[in-house]
Amino acid sequence: MTTSRETPRKTRPRTPGRGVPLALLAPALLGLAFLLVPLLALLVRAPWRSLPEQLTSPEVWQALRLSLFCATTATALSLVVGVPLAWLLARTDFPGRGLLRALVTLPLVLPPVVGGVALLLALGRNGVVGQWLDAWFGITLPFTTTGVILAETFVAMPFLVISVEGTLRATDPRYEEAATTLGASRFTAFRRVTLPLIAPGIAAGSVLAWARALGEFGATITFAGNFPGRTQTMPLAVYLALQNDPAAAIALSLVLLAVSIAVLAGLRDRWMRTV
């Protein structure tokens, strides 16, 4: 089915003398089909007739609202601490910086469930830090919405840090140096000169982090558990619905797909192209 759909593309390259070699075209189309067919399947098998009913159920909205709130808050948290961290990694020189940089990016490659276990051991009620939070302030994080936000921040922040750090490295530090020689403090230079320069990188990093947070599953279910309205985000709802109500799982998946497409479409013209 997919091959017949794509055959017209083979005749498409019009520029003479710039034909695409078959050895590249075939795997490229295979890759394209591999990425697109599952999404098409979601649309083909969607329970369109019962969809309005599925989507207007309070459970779906509850999960979606919680997901959007948590992902946005996690992105904001990542911005507050992640941008300074990226600056530290890009602009200062201290022993062990390479190692530190590697450690910061570790959550990128770490399975999220492992991140969830690590968070439990660190911030759980009985955790290394968590037991003091509980004893001194009476704060317990697992099974709370705050726990969801922290789990999402843990997996999403490295995306922001890497993106911002890359942009900082590509930016000429002499602008900042010029500002400081003209009397600005290093913080003022960062705020007035560096930040506007790296804004596109920050924006791209935020989108990546937000999308990662929105889709976060493993760390969330491990650290924050699953309770509707409090910690049950969309991905958790999809996973649990799949086991006894596949139609609901597809409906929920469509919502996430629509949100993702909306974000990509909305941001493409503004920010993505400049990066």
Partner: peptide
């Protein structure tokens, strides 16, 4: 339809 839905599982 279940087959598609449960692909992840």
């Amino acid at each position: 339809s279940r087959r598609i839905a449960g692909a992840g599982a």
